[in-house]
Design a protein around this nucleic acid. Structure first.
Lengths: 207, 207
DNA sequence: GCCCGATTGTGATAGAATTAACAGTATTTT
DNA sequence: AAAATACTGTTAATTCTATCACAATCGGGC
């Protein structure tokens, strides 16, 4: 069974809110509450939850702790996955710092760069290795996801190396779209595009 | 006429590639070439271009320069829009640095923070103001979009101030979903969710 | 000058995602 | 205990998005 992408995203988001609820001591939550937190509808929430086969105590809302568990069962891998950040510029550093400490089954376990000044430096407890050792480290550490934050002009080349290292998931923060084989899951995120989209809708709203 | 979100995103992406083509001296481009660059199909490209009412010289592909112009006419505002980054932590700094110098009709014109050590500092040529002056500066500088990179626990409060300042578009990099009025265009981007999604599909691929 | 091959533009169609509608059920009220 | 209430789970309808299929067009080869 493979869930739609959007559903997976929403589940991840729900879980975050649910964890928050737990901290606040809330044990049950209604579909409409969850919906309101996430800019969508109660029906959408129920449908998503139906997808994963969880069913609540009727009329009391969903059991927060249980639902977290079920979502975890769907999203998480048994032992978590290891993640590498490739390219330790400003953005790479920021992302690394940002992630460390966030409770998650996804661990940033190494960073890579070509700059000799950066190699062996430790950022938020994560060590930087030379890019040339990518394959070696991928094998020895068991890295399955790469976050790419290299400059645009080396993106294509580096992405090739990432693929050859056997990494199966890529989050691309580069401004150039990457070319990948079918067996690599690739998610492109482009801040400029996001901003331009916002600008477009703001413009519409203003006119 | 209001385009679908997804189309707007793709147009922004196409434009980037087209600008790249221009630099390389390529004057015309076929729909299937553009498609290949962007992980989608030639039909999709043609459909998107149809949406914006541009029509090519048949059989020669699209005129790169013209198409850039037409997309610009759709996406860009007359004089560009001014953007503020709110919260100058690692991520805020990275984003600010990242944007400056990128040719774009969107200018990061100010940053804001509450930390006295950060105020008046200049990052990549952009000055940091105290958050308390948000409304004042929004009015005087004409800020219409905010990029939120504040810590999760102040996100709700700060977003309120952003809304009250009259900002009409928000890009939220915070891990908490924001509550906004109908007249504010809000785009939530959550790295953890993105990574969890990738992890999910990688897991599926591996099993 | 005419045909062939390549490419665009678009109506029709299929597919995915969302929303509506409502039956079912536990809880509270009377 | 029956009725009203307030939810969930699910089927059906709808709407939105992407793809198919093909007519129309143009340039180059003959």
């Amino acid at each position: 069974m493979t869930l739609p992408e959007r559903t997976v995203e929403r589940l991840s988001e729900y879980r975050r809110s649910l964890l928050q609820c737990l901290e606040e001591g809330k044990t049950h939550i209604y579909s409409h509450e969850l919906a309101e937190l996430h800019h969508n509808t109660a029906v959408q929430v129920r449908r998503d939850i139906m997808f994963i086969g969880y069913t609540s105590m009727q009329r009391k809302g969903y059991d927060v702790r249980e639902l977290i568990g079920v979502i975890g069962g769907i999203l998480d891998s048994e032992k978590g996955l290891n993640v590498a950040v490739i390219g330790i510029g400003n953005l790479g550093r920021a992302i690394t710092t940002y992630f460390v400490g966030k409770r998650s089954r996804l661990n940033i376990i190494a960073t890579f760069d070509v700059d000799h000044n950066k190699i062996d430096r430790v950022i938020s407890g994560v060590k930087c290795y030379p890019l040339s050792r990518l394959k070696e480290m991928t094998d020895s550490l068991g890295i399955s996801i790469a976050i790419m934050t290299v400059p645009a002009d080396s993106a294509a080349e580096v992405s090739q190396q990432v693929q050859e290292a056997g990494i199966k998931g890529i989050m691309n923060f580069t401004t150039v779209p990457l070319k990948m084989g079918q067996d690599v899951y690739l998610d492109e995120y482009d801040m400029i595009t996001s901003l331009e989209k916002i600008a477009y809708f703001v413009k519409l709203g203003l006119s």
